[in-house]
Design a protein around this nucleic acid. Structure first.
Lengths: 345, 345
DNA sequence: GTGAAAGCGCTAACAT
DNA sequence: ATGTTAGCGCTTTCAC
């Protein structure tokens, strides 16, 4: 083995490895990709040369020549969210067993950014695209369709997917939560949520929720929307605001677990009887809730499972098996915790 | 404008746009990259053709031809962490003003995975690499050096960087926290942390911490380490364990805010006088703390700022300005909150 | 302002 | 088991 090389002015190429090992570029290429038959001797020579030189293949050239890219674009609205990291875990878990590599792009819930990120990623011709949500700009949908690449929209199934879709019905999740609440005899129901325009899934849950109430001739008696800042703190503040404005409220439905947890902490401090005097529920089933003094009722969307299924679809399609336009609808799981059940049903 | 096209069997190329618009490939290329002089008329024809066809450039070919890739590889240990998303925010903020695009890879604190992700990313010849931590396998360091690409190691400055580095000294952060605690007259100090081998920064903080105690002839009287699960819950459980085993403890230093918050919640429930009977401190300055009933003492590492500085270095180097081997040391900021100060100093 | 030719570093396909 | 040829879709360079 030679000395450590000093930083090269020109990136190394197959040719360099070929010259050092005395083997043709083609054979070097074969060795480096474990493709075709290569004798053990040649193999070792090549590997040694590549290692000594510190050669790293140029996938740009490789991809152009083979028109094959082992990248899967994953486009999500946010990282600070607790929910998408879990989806990523599921995706990685499945892709790790293949030669596909996830590449993450973040949109910050902005359709314009989504369009830009999508364009950028498509221009690298990935083997598949996984993107959060089912609402996209018309231009984005056109790009997706025109790409000819397997597309999996995740999280939400309420709408018209471009190709495959894996998720839950958020409308249904909202409906189910409303029904569970009504079943416990709560009657004055308030809502605290994110400002909607950006978050379609939260909006759909709210719609399903109010719809189920309406079916019983009821409606949300008061509501409050927030927009950034520490979710836990916001939950606290908004819960106080809501209860001061509408003291009769006996249940609050939160659009996510973080603000719900804030509300719960506030109630516990105030010694409010939960759920006797006031019931609470959130959405997501986040890990965090495990550490709270009492467990917030919530609904788990099975995010890791969504990631796994989406990755599986992409992996299959990339391998040439599997069919376009699959639709996988998962069932949200109600987790009653300690803040919902006044009676055993 | 023509009808919407049906999904093409073959991805579109410049040549397609060229034929439709009746302009040479070269000119089409110029228009699409806003390069060189093109007459307004030609320009419009080309743009219209590209839009109608739904053409998305092939960056693989472009990158090969120009040997220029507008990607910045960002390699981090985890997404579920609350800290890296903030770093990403800082990175994105700066790169958004350039034509560079961050691409995220996740290592799950595994050196082997780091090596693999790094190799994979280097093979796409990005314009820069930002990676968390300063400890890497020898093979990884060799790859980084050999790549000739600007490298910025972030978060931690205690060690020998490959090239540039932006972060804080975690050893110093640990030392400072110990000093702040001693200044408040605490004497029986316990520690609760992550199992170390994976997390070098937590280890260094602990080392700095014990070192500062040792300087006063003191040591950590008891400690407890954890390894996964809900951090909040673990914080709770381990705090209980520690205090039952060593009831004399009057301060607990946590290796991060999440377990610290769990401990704090547990103390509040037990009506333990904080910080009179027991002081608490964590590390990171996470947003979450804002929503707790009382503010945990912590130390902010300026994560967004780290991201911004790292991105700035990469952007400058990619633009040909700036020099290799920069070293930016940020100062951790103590946030005393409500769980540290028994006296005004 | 526009076009033609050459080639980026690799791999598919076909020799041998 | 190994080598040769052609070309992936762009951009650089130079010519007009």
């Amino acid at each position: 083995m030679t000395d450590d090389v000093s930083p090269p002015r020109r990136p190394l190429t197959l040719r360099d490895v070929s010259e050092v090992s005395g083997v043709s570029e083609m054979t070097v290429s074969r060795v480096l990709r474990n493709r075709g038959d290569v004798s053990a001797g040649t193999r070792d020579k090549v590997l040694a040369a590549a290692r000594d030189l510190g050669y790293v293949p140029n996938k740009i050239a490789g991809a152009l020549a083979s028109s094959h890219v082992n990248l899967v674009a994953v486009i999500i609205p946010s990282l600070s969210n607790m929910v998408f990291p879990e989806v990523m875990t599921g995706i990685t878990e499945v892709l790790d067993a293949t030669d596909l590599q996830p590449v993450v792009g973040v949109t910050n819930y902005s359709p314009e950014r989504e369009e830009k990120v999508l364009y950028e990623m498509l221009s690298w011709r990935p083997s598949g695209i996984i993107l959060a949500g089912i609402e996209h700009s018309e231009a984005s949908r056109r790009m997706l369709r025109a790409s000819g690449i397997p597309v999996v929209e995740i999280m939400d199934v309420d709408g018209e997917p471009v190709d495959a879709v894996v998720g839950i019905s958020h409308r249904r999740a909202g409906r189910q939560m409303a029904e569970a609440i009504l079943r416990q005899g709560f009657e004055q129901i308030g809502f605290i949520g994110t400002k909607m325009p950006m978050d379609h899934r939260a909006r759909k849950r709210f719609e399903g929720f109010t719809e189920a109430l309406a079916k019983r001739g009821m409606e949300v008696v008061d509501q409050e929307f927030y927009d950034g800042g520490s979710a836990l703190k916001k939950g606290r503040e908004m819960t106080q605001t809501l209860l001061e404005r509408s003291p009769d409220i006996d249940f609050i439905y939160y659009s996510n677990d973080m603000i719900g947890a804030g509300g719960l902490l506030w109630c516990l401090e105030r010694k409010i009887d939960v759920p006797g005097r006031l019931g609470l529920a959130g959405f997501n089933g986040v890990d965090l809730l495990d550490g709270l003094p009492c467990r917030l009722a919530t609904m788990d969307a099975g995010r890791a499972e969504i990631g796994r299924q989406a990755a599986r679809i992409v992996a299959d399609r990339a391998a040439g098996v599997g069919t376009a336009g699959q639709r996988i609808v998962l069932e949200p799981r109600l987790q009653p915790g300690d803040t919902l059940k006044r009676y055993k049903d």
